[in-house]
């Protein structure tokens, strides 16, 4: 008996192998922590640099030659209107596409092409969407370097990823709900409208919000269509314009800047004091992006429980 227990204790080669294996845990853990801590550290640096600049004035001032006076106001208006245009154009199209693929598309080559095409479109670099927007919206459609042109460009950019996320959400709905409705004599659309969509909506919303958070930080595509201009007014329609469609549309035709473009402009400014402005703008942008991510996570968790 005693002999047995001695034999089971690791010795020699086995002990060495076990030691290496146990040590490897800390190596892999270290690598994991490294990635996360680099980001935490950079976040800390940004807050330290930007906090001094962050104030109400920073949010309400126009850009200026003087770093302390320069603010984010037009960029925030620009981001707001741009996101509104992007949301209203991309989301209906994306959800419609996802419904078509999952529920209506004939299972033939056309559908395969559409699906492969979407996967590839999702991987097209944003700057290519930028030249597409520049050629089609800015030049060909004569929209100039306007909010509309920017919003449409971003919409085209996020449609593929929104479609893919929505498809995933629709596929999560148990087929028994669809079959149950169809067996009761519901039409295809009735089954989708009353049984599939209500249950897919949380997943669709999560995916959509994540796409929007991608669009909100997009810089290259907007710089391509010419969003890099010095703007000292509030882009987009004013409050009073809501009553007047012509004025509203005119507002959407204004040129614009957005928060990420402002970050770019301040980052590359040779005057070092503007770095604090860039950092402060990054804090504002990240608060927005994180709020969107949090919202998506909350929706996901909330509905998972039900």
């Amino acid at each position: 008996m005693a002999n047995q227990s001695i034999r089971l204790r690791a010795g020699g080669a086995v002990a060495r192998r076990q030691l290496v294996s146990r040590a490897s845990r800390y190596f892999f853990l270290g690598a994991t922590v490294l990635g996360v801590s680099i980001l935490l550290f950079l976040g800390y640096e940004t807050i330290v640099t930007g906090a001094s600049r962050l104030s109400l004035d920073f949010l309400t001032n126009y850009p200026s030659r003087f770093a302390e006076k320069a603010g984010l106001r037009p960029a925030m208006f620009g981001t707001f209107w741009l996101m509104l245009i992007t949301i209203f154009t991309s989301i209906p199209i994306a959800i419609g596409t996802a419904i078509w693929i999952e529920e209506f598309a004939p299972r033939n080559r056309l559908m395969t092409i559409v699906k492969i095409n979407l996967a590839n479109l999702a991987g097209v670099p944003s700057i290519i969407y930028g030249i597409l927007g520049l050629t089609i919206f800015v030049r060909f459609a004569g929209m100039d370097r306007s909010l509309l042109a920017g919003g449409f460009t971003l919409a085209l950019m996020i449609i593929p990823m929104t479609v893919i996320a929505s498809q995933e959400a629709i596929r999560q709905v148990p087929p028994s709900l669809r079959d149950g409705a169809l067996a009761l004599g519901a039409t295809r659309w009735q089954a989708v409208r009353y049984n599939v969509l209500p249950n897919a909506i949380p997943g669709i919303m999560t995916g959509t919000i994540l796409s929007i958070s991608r669009a909100i930080g997009e810089t290259a595509a907007l710089l391509m269509i010419g969003g890099f201009t010095f703007i000292r007014f509030d882009p987009g329609p004013n409050l009073v314009d809501f009553a007047d469609p012509a004025a509203f549309l005119a507002g959407l035709n204004e040129s614009f800047t957005v928060i990420p473009i402002q970050i770019y402009a301040w980052s590359i400014d040779s005057r070092r004091e503007f770095q604090a402005n860039a950092a402060a703008a990054i804090i504002v942008l990240m608060v927005g992006v994180m709020a969107l991510n949090l919202l998506a996570a909350v929706i996901r968790e909330r509905f998972r429980r039900n």
């Binding site: 028994s176 079959d179 149950g180 169809l182 067996a183 009761l184 049984n195």
Partner: peptide, 19 residues
């Protein structure tokens, strides 16, 4: 087929009430 299914009801293996 919709006309067919409204005349011929179906009950499935696993109860599948709508939520």
């Amino acid at each position: 087929p919709v006309e067919v299914r409204r005349r011929i009801g179906m009950v499935f293996q696993k109860p599948n009430p709508f939520p």
